[in-house]
Design a protein around this nucleic acid. Structure first.
Length: 512
RNA sequence: GGCGGCGUAGCUCAGCGGUAGAGCAGGGGAAUCAUAAUCCCUUGGUCGGCGGUUCAAAUCCGUCCGCCGCUACCA
């Protein structure tokens, strides 16, 4: 059984979870679940990033110590994961001892390889961005103070700092990208990153002395590690690094890190460089997703249009939300989220196409086959074609899933679902009931046998709903993976009474 | 300024050298098993503008216009 390791970014506890966090986590969850159905031994990691000056400041402003602050916000992210149905195998926090110890070990390893040196850094630093900027990148605020391109205030900082010899890794990184064309997805991001690296790399400041909320640099009092070195290391410390003999280490290298487009550089440039310098294999792929805008506008706290995933899940159901997020916008693109679009997908595709297909098929069985799974008689070409398309679905979706093209995978499923609605109309089992009950039974059995692989293949996207459908189809809980589909279900098994899976959403009457 | 992407039906997008496609929306019809759901047919585009290569271009090349991303620099 081959191993598969998928990660979300660890989320920075400085802010509250929003739809963007939920989106990346749901995508990772679908990937993890799909790989498990394929029979892989999956390790799925998420967690929180809790160090750095921003957290220290925010905690101070809240009048509490940083750890208490981090505990509180980490709990919100953990809660979001649970509420979004995320099936992570572990949840790592960068304030945990296992992480701090692993990080220190990684630091020593980089030091031993000669990739770290002590110097001093001075420059314009934006606390909010955790980043230094060149003079030329700055703009001037109305009050005359310098600002980062992001709009964050910057301050002139001069401090002793350890540096990572990133400049020495330029050629090896380029060679690595060349040898691994799928390392960065989508393609457009790969081009951006390689173009950035080709433009030349400067050494990276990897320690700070102006604040203390971080992992101490070994044997260097006053220095704490740069938050990104700290944060990126979570992907290996969660696997037990530096214990590379432990069972978990077998999952390395990661098959895919899912990341938002704002943090590609850290994952696609710094991270492989750190790892190669430490003698650790780089991850296989960094897959980048875009941003959701709200009714066409950027989501921001100041605009007050931040979308709360918990609220949407409560109003429309978790599975419709998960479906919408992965169906509406191609992974990697930016896209617009709106309640209207969500309701349209829910009503048209989930309720009308899939939900109604299941309901009409199952209620025909319930009413005309004594509530038991009918047996197949002789199959027509039409039957065979229908069954073939459904049986081929997992294999048709797999390559899209491997490219994180979730919307394409779903499109494959809907082609089968639409074909099944056409099939049932063509065969008209409600008419056969009066003329040829044996043929009617065959048609209904074909429909049940089409719904089964559809439900299994869609399970990673909408686990609770598809479990309910599989319950109604009489598929045993232990037989809901792709391998189990090869086995035909027994004739005559009694099925539970059908119940709607996706109720249509009707906007409540406006009482005002 | 450099590098790159995008611009195709009302909307979202696929197609990337061989007589314009899908889904949604719009129009007509059928059916009535089903969550007033479904199925069939159909309206609709000079494929951003202009020029070129080719027997043939949405598809290749050049150029212009408009959006967007990354990056650099000037003051």
């Amino acid at each position: 059984m081959s191993r598969y390791y998928v990660t979300t970014p660890i989320y920075y506890v400085n802010g509250a979870p929003h739809i963007g966090h939920a989106y990346t986590s749901i995508a990772a969850d679908v990937l993890a679940r799909f790989k498990r159905l394929q029979g892989h031994d999956v390790f799925f990691l998420t967690g929180t990033d809790e160090h750095g000056q921003k957290v220290e400041k925010a905690a101070a402003e809240a009048g509490i110590d940083p750890q208490t602050f981090a505990d509180r916000n980490a709990a919100r992210f953990r809660d979001m994961s649970a509420r979004m149905g995320i099936s992570n195998d572990d949840f790592i926090r960068t304030t945990e001892a296992r992480h701090k110890d692993g990080c220190a070990a990684l630091w020593r390893r980089l030091e031993a390889s000669g990739d770290l040196y002590l110097g001093h850094y001075e420059g314009w630093y934006a606390v909010r961005d955790e980043a230094f900027y060149n003079e030329g990148e700055l703009t001037t605020a109305p009050d005359g103070r310098p600002l980062a391109p992001s709009g964050a205030p910057v301050e002139w900082v001069r401090e002793p700092s350890y540096f990572f010899r990133l400049s020495a890794w330029q050629d090896r990184l380029l060679a690595f990208y060349e040898a691994n064309p799928d390392f960065i997805g989508p393609e457009s991001r790969r081009r951006e990153v390689t173009s950035f690296v080709r433009g030349g790399l400067t050494d990276l400041s990897v320690s700070r002395t102006t604040f203390s909320w971080g992992i101490p640099v070994p044997d260097a009092p006053g220095h704490v590690m740069y938050v990104w070195l700290d944060a990126l290391a979570n992907y290996v410390t969660a696997l037990g690094y530096p214990d590379t003999d432990g069972a978990r280490w077998a999952y390395w290298p990661a098959d895919v890190h899912l990341v938002g487009k704002d943090i590609v550089r850290f994952h696609a440039v710094y991270w492989p460089a750190f790892l190669m310098a430490a003698g650790i294999a780089p991850p296989r792929r960094v897959s980048t997703n875009g941003w959701w805008t709200v009714d066409g506008e950027k989501m921001s706290k100041s605009l007050g249009n931040v979308v709360d995933p918990l609220d949407l899940a409560e109003t429309y159901g978790l599975d419709p939300l998960r479906y919408f997020l992965l169906r509406e916008m191609p992974f990697g693109n930016d896209g617009t989220i709106s309640r209207r679009a969500l309701v349209a997908r829910l009503n048209t595709e989930l309720a009308n196409d899939l939900g109604n297909l299941a309901q009409r098929s199952l209620s025909l069985i319930a009413r005309n086959c004594g509530g038991a799974r009918p047996a197949r008689g002789m199959l027509t070409d039409d039957d065979r074609e229908m069954l073939g398309a459904a049986a081929a679905l997992p294999a048709a979706m797999a390559p899209a899933i491997d490219r994180q093209a979730f919307h394409e995978a779903l499109d494959e499923a809907w082609r089968v679902i639409r074909a099944a609605n056409a099939y049932i109309d063509r065969q008209a089992p409600w008419a056969l009931r009066k003329t040829d009950t044996a043929r009617m039974a065959t048609v209904l059995r074909v429909l049940a046998d089409v719904l089964r692989p559809v439900a299994v293949a869609l399970w990673p996207f909408m686990p609770a709903s598809m479990d309910r459908l599989l319950d109604q189809l009489g598929v045993a809980p232990g037989a809901r993976d792709f391998a189990a589909l090869a086995e035909e279900l027994p004739d005559g098994a009694s099925l539970p009474p059908p119940q709607g899976i996706f109720p249509r959403h009707v906007e409540p009457e406006d009482g005002a």
